[in-house]
Design a protein around this nucleic acid. Sequence first.
DNA 1: GTGAAAGCGCTAACAG
DNA 2: CTGTTAGCGCTTTCAC
Lengths: 330, 330
Amino acid sequence: MATIKDVAKLAGVSIATVSNVLNGGRYVSPELRSAVLQAVRTLGYVPNGVAQSLRSRKTQTLGLIVPDITNPFFSGLVQALERSARDRGYQMLLCNSEENAELEFDLALALASRQVDGLIVIPTQDSPEYLRKLKADGLPVVLLDRIGGEDDLDRVGVDNFQAARVGTEFLIRQGHREILLLVSTLELSNIRDRAEGYRQALAAAGIPQDPQWVIECGKDAPSLEAVLEAIQHHRPTAIFASTNRLSLLAIQAIRRLKLGFPEEISLLGFDDFEWSTLLEPYLSAVVQPIEALGFQAAQILLDRLKGDTSPPKRVLLPCDLAVRQSVQRR
Amino acid sequence: MATIKDVAKLAGVSIATVSNVLNGGRYVSPELRSAVLQAVRTLGYVPNGVAQSLRSRKTQTLGLIVPDITNPFFSGLVQALERSARDRGYQMLLCNSEENAELEFDLALALASRQVDGLIVIPTQDSPEYLRKLKADGLPVVLLDRIGGEDDLDRVGVDNFQAARVGTEFLIRQGHREILLLVSTLELSNIRDRAEGYRQALAAAGIPQDPQWVIECGKDAPSLEAVLEAIQHHRPTAIFASTNRLSLLAIQAIRRLKLGFPEEISLLGFDDFEWSTLLEPYLSAVVQPIEALGFQAAQILLDRLKGDTSPPKRVLLPCDLAVRQSVQRR
DNA sequence: GTGAAAGCGCTAACAG
DNA sequence: CTGTTAGCGCTTTCAC
């Protein structure tokens, strides 16, 4: 690979001049400029980004840690993030934490050591301590989606409480009073918020509650068994699946039990995605603004890189309710 | 951020010694060693990966260009790739080409300029010329999934011809003779291979063919209209959707036309994915070994990085046929 | 067994 | 207007 020296020699100028025509640093006479450009072309010179980074102390790279790229919600976020980053001249180092807190920690350190300019994390647990430290060490961090804890970190997510409340109210308005809530794990505060929204909606409607109606199904490999059992035991008229994965599980359970769907049992999901059109009747769901989430997170981080030192931001986006066919009036 | 100099000063040794205890370069006496380790700990020293890269001419980073992370087939590939890379101490710069050849080219150059150690590309078009050049310049490249053209590049994909042939034969064995083939675009050789497998299966069964039965639906935003029209015009008893996206489209068309499914019309898909379980009857499909594809691609690339200079490899993995409910015997 | 110093490729401050 | 040079943080010779 040709270096800046090779170009300088071939063009008969100093390396400073090469650098200046390439980066528009200072004025260079037309003659030298074209000589340089010519040399660049004949050598196929491409600047060494690593050297640039070492020198400038900027890598133009963002680190991104995601629990599972395979989940359409996360892959949608990744897409939005990558696009925003690219538009602003940044590249993205993508890591998969596989819902493993320890791995997540190691990955974050590895990214920091690689000198990423900033970090976007969808954490495995609420507001991990180590991220505060990284931030204190000067690495801008923004938390995405899972934004629990009264953090001093920037974070963008959705108003889970409100979203779940609106969803539950919709179910209630459709005449449902026996509503099963499926959650992944109550260890995540955004899931707890959803549970709380559900509870408050019930309370406001004067519907008696029972913690037993909130079913914890597991974060990584949610169990069908739990859902089957809960349905058989409680005989709900509606299920509110608070996660896209859980909608899938609910469907499987409903089919397994050969319940009439949606006549006998209604289903309200969380998140909208291309493949949910495979389901018939078409899934009604609380939908998160995936693009906007990714975009906002990138925006905030990039602003920080530009020197924004305002106090930590907290962006809570609203969800929509997509009313389709899987919820039937009672 | 502390540098190696700070550590050396605090430990009262030279930077060479610090480097040596950290990288196990040469023997260091126990006393100095522990002094260094101590200093590292109190300073919270983390080596600067950029400097290491500049010096060692290795970034421990792989570039990955994918047409659409949002497609479960690709995101599955990304997951497998990332895992393999991570297991061997590599990180991944992920780029989304959005099915845009020009963007893909720019991204590849940007990655090369960032000195990635190797490149894995799922190209937008068959065997792009520029990749040969990058390889000639010393950048190991492996093509994944879309591996058309008689390349001198390493490539791993699936035996599309065979897979489509087996799928079509299955349909024929179930008594179907009027089989519509849905393809994204015949510009991709792997799709052409699928079409060819379909044709050969028909030919072998003595079923007359008509190029009109192969419907091109478009690569990025396949059109429902084309499918609707084709079904109405040809009245097939079965549809073979040669792409996961196309299965979705086929379903939508079948529903729109209110055809009995699978009694009136059968559907065979391509690719298996978690969310396809939403479909009832459950989709029968030709399934690609996603994990193995990703793993093999990473393997080959990493071997090249280790110095493997054998001639370009071509790995063709076989597909499976998942027989479920969406294809009905005639 | 350890330290000093060169140099990876680049940018920017300093000279002219 | 352009060239020379220091130095980013590290690894690795070369010297002792």
